[in-house]
Computed example of a mutant assay.
Amino acid sequence: MDAILRLFPEHIKDAIKEKVKNRWYELQEIRFRLNQPIELIYDTKIEWINQIKPDSKDAIFVLNQLSEFSLYRMEDELREGYITIEGGHRVGLAGKVNTLGGIVKAIQHITFFNIRIAKQKLDVALPIIPYLYRKKYMSTLFVGPPQTGKTTLIRDIVRLIGSGWKNILPTKVAVIDERSEIGGSIKGIPQHNVGIRTDVMDACPKAEGMMMMIRSMSPDVLVVDEIGSEKDVQALMEATLAGVVVICSVHGQNLEEIKKRPSLQPLFEQAVFQRFVLLEKQEQPGFVKGIYDHNEMNILQKKRCSNDVVRSGSIHRYHNVDRI
């Protein structure tokens, strides 16, 4: 956690270390707001460091650590509203926005910081990936509300496809990592294990990146996170027409909800996906509610020999007949 703790002044660093102690593996976010207590968000609860309320000097210290004393170097990142640091951790920023012609130029007077802890969970997708493979990988859409583990699962799917699993050989994977969340790259080098046959296009818009990777890296599987725009959808459809398997995610509660979105309707009309993985918000992220085939039948229900639930990379036993 040194990459995270170095961001803070000594008195805040000591307070966080004392509060978290040996629970770093449970920590999801550190929320740092000017003149407010520091918020610590764990997998199953929220805690506060009430004795410290950061002031403007503390905020300047954090900004200097993030930018290595040169905000000019981070102009593009400031426009996007986040910075990825060593270890793949992502720092979200908010404050007063500077616009020009209705376009965000930068965030000024940054007074809100959200440090999202990047924790690669190896084999978290191992119970899921057999459902996505039938002699070859199938185009798959992960669906779930925020903080349900979509990116964590996709990151491990990328690693498993790129390195192979059980008796399945490694496959060429191209990742368009627009927000640096899958690979957590620093200067183009992924900080997470993304597999031996995986190529990453970091900080590139999804639509442009997909076409670039198809032309330059000839992938068998193309992976992007959080699609939504018409350009994203058009690029995905072009990729499938080129014979490339696509794996991606989208925010949503269920299939019925996302099918109503005008920008996503072409994906269903053209039957782009053969698998849909639905995630549900529980006490911990990574709860798989169901895996559906191209006919939108829950194929998890067909496994009669077990009554388990796939969650966070391990199998937890339940007695619901409609879950595994």
Rank of each mutant, 00 (worst) to 15 (best):
F287V: 01
I299T: 14
P205S: 02
T84K: 08
E208L: 11
W24L: 14
N50K: 15
L153P: 08
S314C: 04
S180T: 09
I117M: 14
D156A: 06
N320Q: 10
Q274W: 04
V62W: 00
R79H: 09
I182M: 04
D202I: 06
T171E: 04
F112T: 07
P285R: 12
L132N: 07
S56K: 13
I157D: 00
E256Q: 04
G144E: 11
M213E: 05
A242M: 13
E29G: 10
E10C: 09
K17G: 07
I227P: 00
P145R: 00
L279F: 11
T151V: 10
G252D: 12
G228M: 00
I16Q: 09
D55A: 13
V200T: 03
S263L: 08
S216N: 12
I46C: 12
G195T: 01
F276D: 03
A106D: 14
Q265A: 13
A174S: 13
G144I: 10
E226Q: 04
D293W: 08
Y292G: 04
P190H: 08
E296R: 00
S70L: 03
G184A: 10
F142L: 05
D14Y: 09
E296I: 00
S185C: 15
E238W: 07
G209N: 02
L7K: 05
R155Q: 09
